[in-house]
Each structure stands twice: as structure tokens, then as C-alpha cells.
């Protein structure tokens, strides 16, 4: 199989949070996260329907993205930011995917997923910028990873360039007509000029996109098929995590210490508030690959050429 026409990669520089920064948040002990996440260990906004418990809502979310990415009959699927492997497991066990490849920068997550010995699943400790698949993918899903694709403090132009590099990579990795389903936290009613020090401490080096950054970065490479905003769904998910953590507080303190648990309680509560007041939003976007992008000519050059 051939990877269709290559789109030049705009920049070779590194975008987003470093492996050390990712490990700072995610490698604090798998057992700790097990206490307050659901049984599938899905650490991102769920998709709630009336009567759902957290696990049902998380699995609904996974299936939503699998459907959005057009995974039906897909042989090969990439999961950028695979966490503790809930999507990889769902793809191979329930959706007949033969090869599911997961990327993560977290060692503990990778070891955890490898320990599950899931047939057809490969997990790689690798930045998406370094991923060079031998065979293209039929679909790509990325849930709760895009939040780490821009480094705190870069200019808006650099930020969008970093995001565009991600879409260029996805474009090269996908077969013609391939789908990409993306979920990320975004800034909504928020002033980037006044960043929150506590949030920066919880998620080092990471900065959030706005919806228009994503639209601009993907323009010409991917068509936006569907877009939905679910701030209230993340508020509910965060509150459920917070209540779960409080229900298992003694065990959590045994792992993280009192100060560590308080820090997580504050983070979960502050994020719940941030979604409640719409400082942040949660976007889920279905993209379809534009197979033959027109060569982008800047408007100024177009005039010169005329």
C-alpha cells in the first residue's frame, strides 16, 4: 500500500509538552488513577446519557469516536495519546480492528497497556512527530492529547503551526478518505494573557487551543464533518472523578500523601468550575481527509502571479 501524495511538513522543531512534562502528570502511579477513574481507566470527558454511570458514559464516548472516525471495517487504526488503552481495547475487541496502534509519552501508561496483552494492539512510547508508520491507517482517533500539542508561552502563530504539523502528519498517515476524530479541551471565555498558575503547575508546559486554531490548522487538509461542544459533559465527568476520589480518600492518601490528594481535589474542582463558567469548553470534531488538497497559494502571491 502506498501512502498517497506527501504534504510537506512545515517545521521540524518540536511542538508541545516534553515527555518529562507528560510523565509529571500521568506517571504518578497507575494505582492512584484506578481509584477514581472508571474500570476502563478512561481519563477524558465522557459522553453521558440519562441513567449512565461513569463506565457506561466512557464506553459511549469511545464508541462515538470510533463511529466518527469511520472505523467500520477499518483494518488499521491509530490512537494518538492512548492513555491506559481503553480505546485500543474497544477497537480490537468490539469493532473488529486488526491493528490498533497507540502512541503515548507516558511510560507507566505504556507498561500498563502492554501488560494487558491485547491481541492486535501495539503501544509505542513516541511523540506523534516521530511516528513513521510503514503502512497507512484507515482511521485516527485522538482523545485528550491535543491539549499537550502546544507549549505554554509560544505565540499564536507558532501554536497554529504546531497544530498544522499534527494535521499534516495525520494526512500523510491516512488512506484516502480516511477519518480523524478529535476531542480536546479548548479555551472559551478565557484571557490567555492571564494564565492560571495552578493549571500550569498541574499540566506543565501545556497550553490549550481555541476552536478557530483547530479550524485554521486543519484547513485544506481535512474537512470538518461534524463539531460538537460539550462543556457540561466534562463538568459532570470531573465532578464524578472528584466524588470518586473523595470516596476512596484514605487509599489515595496512602499512595499520594495528604498534600498530593488535596492538589488533585483542587485541580478536579477547579476544572469543573472552569467548564461550568465556560472559561473552558470541550470540543469533539469529526474530520475527513481531503485527498487532493489544492496547492495553497497565499493571496498576496496570487496577485503577483496574475
Amino acid at each position: 500500500m502506498m501512502v498517497s501524495e506527501e504534504i510537506p511538513v512545515t517545521a521540524n522543531t518540536s511542538h508541545g509538552a516534553s515527555p518529562e512534562a507528560i510523565q509529571n502528570h500521568y506517571d504518578v502511579g497507575n494505582d492512584f488513577y484506578r481509584l477514581w477513574l472508571d474500570r476502563t481507566s478512561t481519563y477524558s470527558c465522557a459522553l453521558w446519557e440519562p441513567g449512565d454511570d461513569l463506565e457506561v458514559a466512557q464506553v459511549r464516548k469511545l464508541d462515538f469516536h470510533i463511529e466518527q472516525a469511520g472505523v467500520t471495517r477499518a483494518a488499521r487504526v491509530l490512537d494518538v495519546g492512548c492513555g491506559w488503552g481503553s480505546l485500543l481495547m474497544r477497537l480490537t475487541s468490539e469493532h473488529s480492528v486488526q491493528d490498533a496502534v497507540g502512541l503515548t509519552l507516558s511510560r507507566e501508561q505504556a507498561e500498563w497497556v502492554r501488560g494487558l496483552h491485547l491481541p492486535g494492539v501495539e503501544v509505542r512510547i513516541e511523540n506523534w512527530q516521530d511516528h513513521r508508520p510503514d503502512v497507512p491507517y484507515d482511521a485516527i482517533v485522538s482523545i485528550g492529547a491535543f491539549e499537550h500539542f502546544a507549549r505554554l508561552g509560544v505565540s499564536e502563530e507558532e501554536k497554529i503551526a504546531g497544530y498544522r504539523s499534527f494535521f499534516e502528519h495525520c494526512h500523510r498517515w491516512l488512506t484516502p478518505g480516511g477519518g480523524l476524530s478529535l476531542q480536546t479541551i479548548t479555551y472559551e471565555n478565557f484571557d490567555e494573557g492571564c494564565p492560571n498558575a495552578f493549571v500550569a503547575d498541574i499540566f506543565p508546559e501545556s497550553d490549550l487551543p481555541r476552536v478557530f486554531h483547530i479550524a485554521q490548522a486543519s484547513q485544506g487538509l481535512f474537512e470538518i464533518v461534524r463539531l460538537r461542544q460539550d462543556a457540561e459533559q466534562y463538568e459532570r465527568t470531573l465532578k464524578q472523578w472528584l466524588f470518586n476520589l473523595k470516596d476512596h480518600r484514605d487509599e489515595a492518601v496512602a499512595i499520594q500523601g495528604e498534600a498530593g490528594v488535596r492538589r488533585y481535589e483542587k485541580y478536579l474542582a477547579m476544572f469543573a468550575v472552569a467548564f461550568h463558567v465556560r472559561a473552558m469548553n470541550l470540543v469533539r470534531i469529526a474530520f475527513r481527509r481531503i485527498d487532493q488538497p489544492v496547492r495553497c497559494i497565499a493571496p498576496s502571491k496570487r496577485v503577483q502571479n496574475a
Binding site: 465532578k239 466524588f243 481535589e265 478536579l268 474542582a269 469543573a272 468550575v273 461550568h276 463558567v277
Partner: peptide, 17 residues
């Protein structure tokens, strides 16, 4: 959080809003 500790209840963090 402190108020919830005092009352012995797990309170919703968005209540003040």
C-alpha cells in the same frame, strides 16, 4: 471544600456559582 469538611458532606464545587 472546607465547608464540606465542616458539614461532613461532599459538596459540588460549582455551588458558589
Amino acid at each position: 471544600g472546607d465547608l464540606g469538611d465542616w458539614l461532613g458532606l461532599t459538596l459540588d464545587p460549582t455551588l458558589p456559582y
